[in-house]
Amino acid sequence: MGECHYQSGNYEAMIIAEICRQVLKDVGVNPERMVLEWASAAEAPRFVELITRYVSAVKAIGPLGSAEGEDKEAIIRMHLKAGVKAASARKVRTALGKLAKDIKKSGDYNPQIISDGVTKKVFPAFREERLAQEIQICLAETGPCKSADISEKTGGDIKEIGKILETLSRKELVKKQGSNWYGIGN
């Protein structure tokens, strides 16, 4: 650490890794599947140790999906697909950029500070965006649904889903007819 050729690139990576772990945990993937490690050009033995240890750790965790619980594979895939879209969304990226900027300004890359910052300032925006994406995927794939069905599918609680549905309908991305929600567009 602190030996980065680019001076601060590794610090930015710490923030990305933290949001990544929080997201993985949120969608039911063991966050230990993702690691961020340091080995400088002079540390070949350390690199070998890290990679060997990591591969055994992943072996112990088991295959993605099946190891996270029975029949979880498809749902995790859906979460992750929506996650990539959320990670592309301007709102989420702005929150992330702003956090990185603020932490850089403070100069304190203490893991606890990064973790707190991500929890408070980035993760909520990310989750909301991911659920919004999942709602749209859900409506597009299965047709009109009740909000309770959506909640069950996406794993979001019913109140949270309700709020996001309202927002999406204001943006005219979904509409409600009776107790059913419809996707607009695709």
């Binding site: 050729h5 690139g9 930015e12 990226r93 950029g97």
Partner: peptide, 14 residues
């Protein structure tokens, strides 16, 4: 520019 790419991975509008 040293080509680290921090800017690219953090740009809100890609």
């Amino acid at each position: 520019c040293k080509g680290c790419g921090i800017c690219a991975s953090h740009c809100p509008t890609l």
